[in-house]
């Protein structure tokens, strides 16, 4: 078993929402990413999603595209991301790390070498944005053989029949895309999120975390009330973009990026305290 299920179970027991920041690995360099990962965990992140830089991120909006361009300009590679996670693991053996990226770098490295590398680095889950389950070939089996979770996306356009198929392939958590669009777009149709999550609850006991379009306390609380946690990407990557020169690699200089995650942690925890999270969904709707 990877670190994801125990982490999600602990949060569920405590009735607190999962807070999962997304960083582009190597943006703007590996030392900054490593320092940020450690700092974000210290500020209350439950897991870390690490974006693997790819030259053609066609599901990502402008903020993450720019982050990817900064990382690639700094020489980021898939092999380098795995090495970065190995360094993170030297000091943190507990926080789950999930790789999120596009298929071509994995395809070129080779599925066997990739999964072996993930296992050596201590990766807990893999999400390949442009690889629907039907095109995944033997990658899910190879990952499962190494106890690495297979994370897939469900979106507002996913039909119930297809959601069933996706859930069969999924382990760890289900990533619900809150909107029609790319990462960082505006979250508009909250009612449809509520309906769709309720539908998914009928199909699975997997934790459902919600991402795309979550940028502040208000959107994080609204989405956390519907799911089991939130992923925060573009808003965080924008803070990294704004880091002053010379901040790289120094945890104490991570200012606004770290503070954003700290604020969201406090907001989600206050919500737990007031019972909003528990009474909002979970136990009532879960099919046993």
């Amino acid at each position: 078993m990877s670190r994801i299920a125990p982490c999600a179970a602990r949060a569920r027991e405590q009735g607190r929402g999962l807070l999962i920041p997304y960083l582009v690995a190597g943006d703007p360099d590996d030392d900054t990413t490593l320092a940020l990962m450690q700092e974000l965990v210290a500020r209350g992140a439950d897991m870390i999603e690490l974006g693997v830089p790819f030259s053609d991120p066609s599901s990502d909006g402008p903020a993450i595209q720019r982050g990817v361009e900064r990382a690639l300009a700094g020489g980021a590679t898939l092999a380098g991301v795995l090495a970065l996670v190995r360094r993170f693991r030297e000091r943190d053996g507990q926080t789950p790390v999930i790789l999120m990226g596009y298929l071509n770098p994995i395809e070129i490295m080779g599925y066997g070498e990739f999964t072996a590398g993930c296992a050596r680095a201590g990766i807990d889950g893999v999400l390949v944005v442009d690889m629907p389950p039907g095109e995944a070939g033997d990658l899910p089996a190879l990952l499962a053989g190494r106890d690495i979770d297979r994370i897939f996306l469900v979106s507002p356009t996913t039909t119930p029949g297809r959601a069933r198929e996706i859930i069969e392939y999924t382990s760890g958590y289900l990533y619900y895309v809150s909107l029609k669009g790319v990462t960082g777009a505006a979250l508009e149709d909250r009612e449809s999120v509520a309906e769709n999550i309720a539908g998914l609850r009928e199909l699975t006991d997997l934790p459902i975390v919600i991402g795309f379009g979550i940028r502040d306390e208000e959107t994080a609380l609204a989405m956390n009330a519907l799911g089991d946690g939130v992923i925060i990407g573009s808003a965080l990557v924008e803070k990294i973009e704004a880091l002053p020169p010379g901040a790289t690699g120094r945890p104490e200089a991570m200012g606004e990026a770290a503070e954003l995650i700290g604020r969201l942690r406090r907001a989600l925890d206050r919500d737990t305290f007031h019972g909003g999270h528990l009474s909002g969904n979970h136990d009532g709707k879960r099919v046993s």
Binding site: P132, L153, S155, P156, T157, T158, R162, G181
Partner: peptide, 12 residues
């Protein structure tokens, strides 16, 4: 060939 797109586009 195949269909290697993000989930939002699969239905389309």
């Amino acid at each position: 060939g195949g269909v290697f797109v993000g989930e939002t586009l699969v239905r389309a």
